[in-house]
Amino acid sequence: MNDDSVIISRLTESFLLNCRLFALTLAFSLPLGLVIAFGSMSRFQPIRWLVRTFVWVIRGTPLMLQLIIIYYGPGLLSMAFSWPSGISGRFVAATVAFIINYACYFSEIFRGGIESIPQGQYEAGQVLGMTKMQIFFRIILLQVIKRIIPPVGNEVITLVKDTALARIISNKEIIMMAGEYTNKGLIWPLFATGIYFLVFVGVLTLLLGWVEKKLGYFRV
């Protein structure tokens, strides 16, 4: 095997870390975001206040800082809790930080989406004797999903590229891997990483377009 193909296979391997981080973050932050959205709309003021403050802090500080604090924090503060040692610990810490961070952004998109549904939709459900759950899941949710596909798509695409930040706590993701070659004076692997991201985002864009089209049969 020549050097170039070795480099490419190592880049690909490290990009799998980006992909895993992406998939896990998405899988957990979307539902968590919905829970946070309900918290920020709670009729119980202390909960609303608490949740909105939390969202403010998470959205108001750099994800990079959150990664550092979540990974090193327990050790520095001599907490009883600690991350597993080695690679898995770094990856789990990064995943947790990403999930919390993205859940907060998603929660605001959900909140906006839910609040944009006309009151009349709820009232129509109510006068037809539906329960709150039925109204939300049978009437409101799909309309919300349709409305928030574009902003959620934006976040999802940002997430793909943000996964590179995991390197700050020594997760060997693709740009970090390429950096090792740059240090040796080899520049093309760094440029090559851009292709990986471009292709990934390209596929996502097609997927988002497909979902939008699927939901195009009705108007909200």
Partner: peptide, 30 residues
């Protein structure tokens, strides 16, 4: 509230359901 029916000024049909499903949905849930 099922003693009463209400027809709204703005119709408030459910946009993601067909005409038929708009009429059957509440019946099915009940």
């Amino acid at each position: 509230r099922l003693h009463f029916g209400l027809v709204f000024q703005n119709f408030n049909l459910f946009p993601q359901y067909t005409v038929l499903k708009n009429v059957t949905l509440a019946l099915e849930l009940l």
